[in-house]
């Protein structure tokens, strides 16, 4: 799910801290923003825009954090809209709904663990690449 590897150069301590903060930002925002999934995306987005002119290592990890947040946001938003329609409109609780919510919670937990792990590893100056989001970031983020 997350692979630690060597980056193209050895980042200094300041860069490692910045890159680690991009993950921490989304973790803190998840705690603060629940149950509104848009909050953690906005926090990551602000951090991304604040660091897009930073060094390659910082930009790379900000982008990866942002991309993983967008995916989780889509899943969470659908779950949120579904729940609202059950509470305020005519939709009912079905097996499909419960299964979707469990799936979303499991993916959120997975993403949360990966984010915390990435925050710790990048703080040590190591490079971590997530499944799918890592290669995608490498494609988007060029030196």
């Amino acid at each position: 799910m997350a692979q630690v590897s060597e980056f193209v150069y050895r980042p200094d301590d300041y860069e490692s801290e910045k890159a680690s903060n991009s993950y921490l930002m989304s973790v803190v925002a998840v705690i603060a923003g629940l149950p509104l999934p848009i909050i953690n995306l906005l926090a990551t987005l602000f951090f991304y825009f604040g660091n897009r002119k930073g060094t390659f290592f910082v930009r790379w990890h900000c982008t990866q954090a942002l991309l993983s947040q967008v995916t989780v946001l889509c899943m969470n938003s659908a779950g949120f809209a579904w729940t609202i329609s059950i509470i305020f409109r005519d939709a009912t609780v079905t097996n499909t709904y419960v299964a979707y919510m469990i799936t979303v919670v499991l993916f959120n937990i997975g993403e949360f663990i990966a984010t915390v792990y990435a925050a710790i590893v990048t703080r040590k100056g190591q490079h971590v690449s997530f499944w799918f989001f890592g290669p995608l970031t490498a494609l988007i983020c060029k030196d």
Binding site: V98, A99, Y100, T103, W131, F132
Partner: peptide, 24 residues
């Protein structure tokens, strides 16, 4: 990237489908 994306999508919908078989 495409393969990993497909695996991610399949695992999401697969898990959702399997869980929806349970009579909650």
């Amino acid at each position: 990237i495409l393969i990993q994306f497909a695996v991610l999508v399949i695992s999401f919908f697969g898990l959702w489908f399997l869980l929806s078989r349970i009579d909650f």
